[in-house]
């Protein structure tokens, strides 16, 4: 995977952390997913048949996830944006610190390039930052997607690729989870009148 594409993927993750509106972040993250699928397909010529199938699966997963996220956003549109929980610089600063710490902590482990290793780790760290600093519940779904994209970057950069059965299982689980998360988002909006996760803090007390 080219270094330029990796930078683009990481930048779209930071874009999602910076975006004020969930819909903008969703566009950035689903674009990231599609871009990754396209990048994997571009790498397929000259590789094993199993890699080509896995890359196709990644693209299919990206299309399905994009469709589910689009439907979820359309069905849970809110009248006004949530009050901003933290400033742009704080959000981005937290993400940068988390990325740097994680990249420093994870040793080299043998992917095709060090850039791919760092890119994968950076995407997973960005996802964790997104969960920590953003309140609308759609961001949790997007964080999950970014983290899965980080895994996918590592998976397509493995010499010989990951076994297809594992790729297929991961793709199936991801689509299922995003689907269930979309159901939750709608039900939460119906029950709470908002998808701002701060209204749920401490609500469950059995």
């Amino acid at each position: 995977m080219s270094t330029g594409l990796l930078w683009l993927l990481v930048a779209s993750g930071f874009g999602a952390v910076a975006a004020r509106r969930p819909a903008v972040a969703a566009v950035l993250v689903t674009s990231q997913t599609l871009l990754l699928g396209a990048g994997a397909l571009a790498m397929a010529p000259g590789r094993s048949g199993e890699f080509a199938v896995a890359a196709g699966l990644l693209m299919l997963k990206a299309v399905l996830v994009t469709a589910i996220v689009a439907v979820a956003i359309r069905r849970s549109r809110e009248a006004r944006p949530h009050a901003d929980e933290s400033g742009l610089l704080v959000r981005l600063g937290a993400a940068v610190v988390l990325v740097l710490v994680m990249v420093a902590l994870v040793p080299e482990y043998g992917l095709e390039s060090v850039a791919a290793e760092r890119g994968a780790t950076a995407l997973i760290a960005t996802a964790l930052a997104l969960v920590l600093v953003r309140r609308p519940i759609l961001f949790a779904v997007l964080a999950f997607l970014i983290a899965e994209n980080g895994i996918a970057v590592a998976a397509v950069s493995v010499s010989g690729a990951l076994p297809l059965i594992v790729e297929a299982g991961i793709a199936f689980d991801l689509v299922l989870l995003i689907g269930v998360a979309a159901i939750f988002q709608r039900r939460i909006l119906a029950a709470f009148g908002t998808t701002d996760s701060s209204v749920m803090q401490g609500g469950a007390r059995g």
Partner: peptide
């Protein structure tokens, strides 16, 4: 379908999924 149950289910879904993503990495 109670609000507290939705909150619990959501929290479970997000936290365990993110944790398992780290495990997958």
């Amino acid at each position: 379908g109670k609000r507290s149950a939705l909150e619990a289910g959501w929290k479970y879904l997000v936290l365990t999924s993110l944790g398992l993503t780290v495990a997958l990495f």
